[in-house]
Amino acid sequence: MKVIASVALCLLACVGALAADQCYQDVSLDCGQASNTLALPRCNAIYGEYGRHGNVAKELQAYANLHLERSYEYLLSAAYFNNYQMNRAGFSKLFKKLSDDAWEKTIDLIKHVTMRGDVMNFAQRSIQKPVEKKNYTVELHELESLAKALDTQKELAERAFYIHREATRNSEHLHDPEVAQYLEEEFVEDQGKRIRDLAGHTSDLKQFITNNGQDLSLALYLFDEYLQKVV
């Protein structure tokens, strides 16, 4: 029984692997029947092994959701730095930019999920690190918030690496250059630059602080003015 089942599965898998003529067969079959509707279940955008093997399909949805969450968290950080007590317009601008970019990527990822014939699930979380609700706090001072920005940006970048690996190397049955190419073009490059910028900012602030903290208040003021110009 098991043998028969596995043979049947194998056959199914083989049929799945060779996408040739499936939609056409559906059309030929359904159009010959005396029905008023066409089902054509195999006329869809799914190809390769996307969604059939490995985690890539789910991870891409989780990646969209992660961007969505980060986008609103960065938005709150931008708000906090813009209150009258913090009053750091440059830091606020930096976080607003991070928020805008993450929001844009959220929509782009959702479109990509559906481009590949999949359905977007807004509750999907990464299988790699389940329910990793990092406690994102907004009420932080300048250096702390930059540190959070750096960490969360690295998380996004490393997640892209992970999905890329899943799409190209990790799974025996899945090789998806389309996803790999998408990640490389739309995410990997920008993320590298952004991480470098944030790391550079923390290095600068670090030096102001280690200088006995003597010029800290002035340094933070000037650095904020600088951020207003470069972000």
Binding site: Q85, H141, L143, E144, I209, T210, G213, L216, S217, L220
Partner: peptide, 8 residues
């Protein structure tokens, strides 16, 4: 190490 300016 003082990393921030005290609130006023």
């Amino acid at each position: 190490t003082q990393c921030h300016v005290n609130p006023v």
